[in-house]
């Protein structure tokens, strides 16, 4: 909760330039996560660059290729309730509305959602060992209380999970992240945006220092006919996922022609297994087939002392959510189980 300098940027290039004048600076938009962790003394910015006034990042626009572009500064609420999102990407809408609270969704931006830090108890405790917070300090979660931790893709250095709901849908939808930075613009496929912890758990994603997310592109395919987001947690709202699933299906009669399945709450990034999606192609949408897909998705899953249940829970969630996707009208507030 140190003191910091504050600068309001009017353009993206001005923001990027300002940020790169300091070694410990951060962009601030909604602030819902940054101010939270700053108050917990987990991050110590010397400069905050306010990007809320950047004119280019504030709208949702239709792209020439038929997809949509979400400006990075559009709030989560405005995204979830946007008519084009509700009609063409309802999976994204439902996932956003399953996260946080109405107030936080009114503040948090789409760009910021991608940059949320983990809710790992030990990351949040400035005095506990945590390789993500202080590289090389150790991981208190592996032999600690790890109910909320990863079952997939973890490393001996970090078993934290990425907490976003929105990003689980973005992963399923194969979004693309557009960034600008000191070395110009680039775009990053969603699957490549977040990282697994490996031996560098301090890095949540592949952004370079000083790079700024300007927008997120949604490809044409929105799975608006058959989709479902299911979130399982320790209370019925305003809690992070133990396991969540985003499922989008394209069907020809009963037969799946295209499937997307992404898991949240189980790994350091939204978890997608393309082999499982391939396996479902050409098969009827039945619990048995979703179970086969679940087995592929959960290959190599490893539980710890308090979270082994997630492996079985994720399997059942994948099956249920597959069936829920056949009846998207049954979606319940808070992405609770239905059918």
């Amino acid at each position: 909760m140190n003191s910091f300098a504050f600068l309001r940027a009017e353009t993206a290039s001005e923001a990027v330039k300002a940020l790169n004048t300091k070694a410990q600076a951060a962009f601030i938009a909604g602030g819902t996560n940054l101010i939270d962790i700053w108050k917990y003394n987990l991050t110590h910015p010397e400069l905050l660059v306010d990007i809320n006034r950047l004119a280019d990042c504030r709208a949702i626009i239709e792209k020439a290729d038929g997809g949509l572009r979400l400006g990075a500064l559009v709030t989560n609420a405005d995204t979830a309730y946007h008519p084009l999102i509700e009609s063409r990407y309802p999976l994204l809408s439902k996932a956003i509305l399953a996260g946080a609270s109405a107030q936080i969704r009114n503040m948090a931006t789409d760009g910021g959602n991608l940059l949320q830090r983990t809710r790992c108890y030990y990351f949040y405790d400035a005095n506990a060992p945590c390789n993500k917070r202080v590289s090389g300090s150790g991981c208190a979660a592996i032999n600690g209380y790890n109910r909320i931790h990863a079952i997939l893709g973890a490393s001996e250095h970090c078993i934290a999970v990425f907490p976003s709901d929105m990003c689980v849908a973005l992963a399923a939808l194969a979004a693309v992240v557009n960034v600008t930075g000191p070395n110009g613009d680039r775009n990053i496929a969603f699957a490549d945006f977040h990282r697994l912890p490996g031996d560098q758990p301090e890095r949540d994603n592949n952004l370079q220092y000083g790079e700024l997310i300007t927008s997120i592109d949604l490809p044409v395919k929105g799975f608006e006919q058959n989709y479902s987001y299911l979130k399982l947690r320790d209370r019925q709202s305003y809690a992070f996922a133990l396991v969540s699933v985003a499922t989008g299906l394209e069907l020809d009669g009963d037969v799946i022609t295209e499937a997307r399945i992404a898991l949240g709450g189980v790994a350091h990034k939204p978890w997608r297994a393309k082999e499982a999606e391939e396996l479902l192609k050409g098969k009827p949408a039945t619990p048995e087939n979703f179970a086969k897909a679940a087995a592929v998705i959960l290959q190599g899953a490893k539980g710890y002392k308090h979270n082994s249940f997630k492996i079985e829970l994720a399997k059942r969630a994948i099956i249920r959510n597959g069936m829920m996707a056949l009846h998207p009208q049954s979606q319940r507030p808070g992405a609770q189980p239905s059918l």
Binding site: R119, Y121, D234, R235, Q236, Y238, F240, G334
Partner: peptide, 9 residues
């Protein structure tokens, strides 16, 4: 956030 007490839901 993680010490859960009931929400309205």
């Amino acid at each position: 956030a993680e010490y859960h007490i009931p929400t309205h839901a």
